[in-house]
Amino acid sequence: MKTILKVENVTKRFGGVIALNNVSVDVYEKEFLGIIGPNGSGKTTLFNVITGFIKPDKGRIIYMDKDITGMPPYKIARLGVARTFQIMKPLENLSVYDNVLIYALPRSKDVDEARDKTEKVLSLLDLWSRRDVLAKDLNAVEKRRLELARAIVGDPKLLLLDEVLAGHSPAEIDKTLAILKKIHESGVTIMMIEHVMRAIMKISERVIVLNYGNVIAEGPPEKISKDPKVIEAYLGEGFKKYLETNKT
């Protein structure tokens, strides 16, 4: 398999805290990679480093055989890397339609083409009926969908999703997952940070686990969910001992 993105030995410190500690990750073309880990384990920092919002202290980011380390975010975005934010940043005083249209424009030859793309994406994400609402007036789930709509309307090659399922009900999760599946099947490589374990285990082809800035496990979902290191990271030493004593 061909790699689309290589994160090589990346380290990032904030003051005394190590957010990423010599992290290396390979992302393969057209795969669906899940990223999990407890709060503060460095997941979002990893996304920020890849998309250029944060400069790593050490290490390199190679995207499609090109070193993009330290490039400004807008240049990285132009190469086909799109992302959503964990803390949503819609353009609050613009309508849903305009929010998506703005993202469609740079990759369209004129405004009309951008309008076509916008309409398609809004229908795909079930936001068409809400197109004239100001972004700040959307509910939390709709805002997540809008983030997603903006991320995909520019036809990215690599899509980084940061907790797009937050605030969803189980029924809404299934709906959004179906949409993500469609996007993935259209040939987009996806990296997804998620806390909803059921969802990420269901949709990912491969999962990596971060803890305190280190990659502690990597592999297919079924293997990860049984990995003792992962269980420990999530539930603590005590729970692992409890599991072990109960096993024997």
Binding site: T51, F53, P72, P73, Y74, K75, A77, R78, A82, R83, F85, K89, P90, L91, E92, N93, L94, I102, Y103, L105, P106, R150, A151, G154
Partner: peptide
């Protein structure tokens, strides 16, 4: 509305 978001579009 947001310079940060604008950068993610590649601008």
């Amino acid at each position: 509305e947001s310079e940060e978001t604008t950068m993610t579009i590649g601008l």
